[in-house]
Design a protein around this nucleic acid. Structure first.
Lengths: 130, 130
DNA sequence: TTCGTCGCTTCACTTTGTGAAGCACCGGTA
DNA sequence: TACCGGTGCTTCACAAAGTGAAGCGACGAA
């Protein structure tokens, strides 16, 4: 199905965007490519995003290439290398990634336990309806 | 598995954040709740997000409640009503959602075709590696 | 009685993601 | 010669997540 195919409360562009970069691992891949804003090879990306499988990495790279968030460049040495780099469209996701990083650092429990549901807010004590 | 359980290129908080709000439909639900910043009922959310099924809506609401992004309030009338509203933690996602909305409006093809891969950039013509 | 609304839950089915292995190519080592 | 490791993927069988449709108990309206 195609989500966002109706006008219901949120604009379809936002919906398309969140369904695109919200796909599993896509946010992590984009963040790694944004980190230094340098081209990355397949194995570098795989190494930089721990739980990511080869299959999904190649799938995501193809999706992002189709959506023109990144470009693929093949360097024919004798050891052929493939590099992926963000396009301007992809690079323009930097504010989104930074905002989400900021939110994560502010609200996600980071130091000790790896578990969830830990109140870690800065002005905590009113985590209720308001 | 738990993604982000290694330090590999991106901070685990960001990873947790993107995997949380990047879950399917979650971004749309949060955006609707942010839209007016008013409590919403189950059926309102369902109506506001077209393709979303009841099952996933209730699942997402529970996840977001567990993560303390929203609170659930039961109003016992004779017609019992359940309202969901963002907590401060959830409301603090507003910059993220706004940034992504902005990106979507800038880069996502919106007017005519519903298809993808349409160059629609503002300073378009250099969608390549740079 | 029958109908509809409320907030869900349950069902069978499809799509998506998983770890592990494999593949064609290359250069180095033994 | 055979083997080894690294490159960028692809393929496989299986598990998890998402799908549309139906159902559920409580209630009010016709």
């Amino acid at each position: 199905m195609i989500p966002g195919e109706g006008t219901g409360g949120c604009c379809p562009q936002y919906h398309r965007a969140v369904e695109l970069i919200g796909r599993r691992w896509t946010g992590a891949i984009v963040a790694v490519l944004l980190a230094e804003d340098a081209p990355r090879r397949f194995s570098e990306l795989r190494a930089a995003v721990p739980g990511l499988s080869d299959r999904v990495l190649s799938q995501r790279l193809r999706e992002l290439e189709v959506e023109q968030l990144l470009g693929r460049e093949v360097h024919a040495g004798p050891p052929v290398r493939v590099e992926y780099a963000l396009t301007p469209k992809g690079r323009d996701l930097a504010p989104v990634v930074r905002a989400l990083e900021h939110w994560g650092q502010r609200w996600m429990d980071c130091g000790g336990s790896g578990s969830l549901a830990v109140a870690a807010g800065p002005s905590a004590d009113d985590h209720r309806l308001g």
